Structures are given as C-alpha cells and as structure tokens.
Simulated scan of single mutants.
Amino acid sequence: MNSTKALNVLKDHGYKHTKQRKKLLDLFDQYDAYVSVKDLFEVFRLDFPGASYDTVYRNLYTLAEIGILETTTLDGEKHFRFHCDTHGHHHHFICTSCGKTSPINLCPVEDVVSTLPGHQIENHKFEVYGKCPSCV
C-alpha cells in the first residue's frame, strides 16, 4: 500500500480526501515500520498545530477499518502501518525496538485447524515479536 493507492481506497469507501488524511498517509509512506499514534501525532501537529490527538486517532482507526492500515499492539500501545499487500498471505516478525517488520512466509493456521475438529475458523492473526538484526 502507498498513499496514492490509499487515497483511492478512501474514495471507494465514500470518504473525502482531506489535507489531514493526506498528511497521515504521506507519513506512512515515510515509515517502513509500525508507528505509534503518539509518534505520528508529534509529526502531524507540525503541519496542523490545532489538530487534536483524537482527530489523528479516529482517522487512523478509520483507515484500519477499511483495510488501508494494519494494527498491532506493542508495549500496550496501538501501532499502525500501511497494509502489506505485496507478498500474498503471510505474517510478520515485528521488531519491538524499531517497529520494522519482516515477512514470515508460512502460516501455522493449518496446524491449528487439525487440532480443532468441527470448528470453523473465520480469521486469524499470527505475529512474532523480538529484535531485528539492527536492534540486537
């Protein structure tokens, strides 16, 4: 995902193209990692000093709800990044120091399905946390 594609997704879901949403999307173009709301807000308010934390928070959740952003929780705080749509179905290793991700090209859900006969799995999420080579 990138900001141009994200703006098209917003339009397809009936959302307006605003300067604030464009700025948030441009910020995600700059990061190749999960970023906290607090960190995004610090940079965002340089261009929009009157904007509230809640405005940024609400916009991020909207972007996540329509599939533009992915979320994870690191140290009890929600972090966001552009939805990863370049590798097909996969999961991520997430660095707990810098937030960068690496794809994991296997899915353990097949093993889980075999241990739950009669169950219907509707969705799943698998993430591995630790330190990337740059942060070790």
Rank of each mutant, 00 (worst) to 15 (best):
H17S: 11
I121Q: 02
H90A: 10
V35T: 04
E77W: 00
P133C: 13
R21G: 13
I94P: 00
I66S: 01
K16V: 09
L40R: 00
H89Y: 14
K125M: 06
V43H: 04
P108L: 03
L60W: 06
T86I: 15
Y61A: 05
K11G: 11
T4V: 09
D29N: 12
H13Y: 07
D85T: 13
T86W: 15
C98T: 04
T71Q: 09
N105D: 15
A6W: 01
V113D: 08
L24N: 00
I104E: 08
I66N: 02
H79V: 03
G118D: 05
N2Y: 13
I94S: 00
Q20I: 05
H90K: 12
E42D: 07
F80D: 01
D32L: 07
I66Y: 02
L60E: 01
K131L: 14
L25S: 03
E42Y: 06
T55H: 01
F48I: 09
D29P: 02
D29E: 14
E77F: 00
G130Q: 12
H89D: 12
S134I: 08
G130K: 06
N123R: 11
Q20W: 07
G14F: 11
Y53L: 11
T72H: 03
T115E: 08
L106G: 11
A33T: 06
K11W: 10
S3I: 08
G88Y: 13
H90S: 14
C95E: 00
V56H: 04
L24P: 00
F82H: 04
D29T: 10
C95W: 02
M1E: 11
H124P: 14
E65M: 00
N105C: 15
G130E: 07
K23T: 13
D54I: 04
L46H: 15
A51Q: 01
K131H: 14
A51K: 01
H89G: 13
D111S: 15
H91N: 04
K11T: 12
L46M: 15
G14K: 11
P49C: 07
T71L: 07
L116P: 01
G99E: 03
V56R: 02
K38D: 09
C98G: 05
G76D: 06
L10Q: 01
H83E: 13
I121H: 01
G50A: 05
E70D: 10
R58S: 13
D26E: 11
T62M: 05
G50D: 10
Q20L: 10
G118V: 06
G50S: 08
V43F: 09
